[in-house]
């Protein structure tokens, strides 16, 4: 069934359609959560909490076109909450799972993941929305409820930070301004 139809059904309170929709996006939900949590358990917690909150609020979504953006926002807020809670409980660096690997490519990936989980929240969100969710500057700014220029600043700072942490590799051609 087409996604738009599922969203419509879910907006009318159909739990099964809602579940189907979330499962449809489950990889992206989990991976986004992981980019905040840095470990599997917390990422799953974030997905569960976001499913719960989104289910409670679905009837308040007014326009099905915004479903994914809306869901992403909820997920990000849940991720912030989990991080906040975790900060109170444990030092963050202890929780990032980094399995050892001899493969160079895999190591680069792990470096990038680690670097992302160490970014400030706003920079991290800007980077995730723009680079992973392929949002435009304007959509990412709306999702974060900030002006476009602020978003651009977060992106620039985030990229700079990542570059520093990853050993100062030359910047790509992606231009965000």
């Amino acid at each position: 069934m087409k996604e738009a139809k599922l969203v419509k059904k879910a907006m009318k309170g159909n739990g099964r359609a809602f579940e189907e929709l979330l499962i449809l996006h489950s990889d992206r939900l989990y991976r986004t959560a992981y980019l905040y949590a840095g470990n599997r358990e917390d990422a799953l917690d974030i997905v569960q909490e976001a499913s719960y909150k989104a289910f409670l609020a679905i009837s308040q979504l007014k326009n099905e076109e915004y479903f994914l953006t809306w869901l992403t926002r909820i997920l990000i807020h849940c991720a912030y909450d989990v991080l906040k809670k975790r900060k109170r409980e444990l030092p963050a660096d202890k929780l990032v799972e980094l399995p050892s690997s001899s493969n160079r490519e895999a190591e680069e990936t792990l470096d990038l993941m680690e670097a992302i989980t160490q970014l400030k929240e706003q920079q991290r969100t800007a980077i995730i929305l723009f680079y992973y969710h392929d949002m435009t500057i304007s959509d990412a700014a709306k999702t974060m409820d900030i002006p476009e220029n602020t978003l651009k600043t977060y992106l620039q700072r985030g990229r700079k930070e990542l570059k520093n942490r990853l050993g100062g590799e030359p910047d790509g051609k992606e231009n965000v301004s």
Partner: peptide, 14 residues
């Protein structure tokens, strides 16, 4: 586990 997490969230919500 992700599907389970989604379902658990929805159950709690319902």
């Amino acid at each position: 586990d992700v599907v389970k997490a989604i379902q658990a969230g929805i159950r709690k919500g319902s």
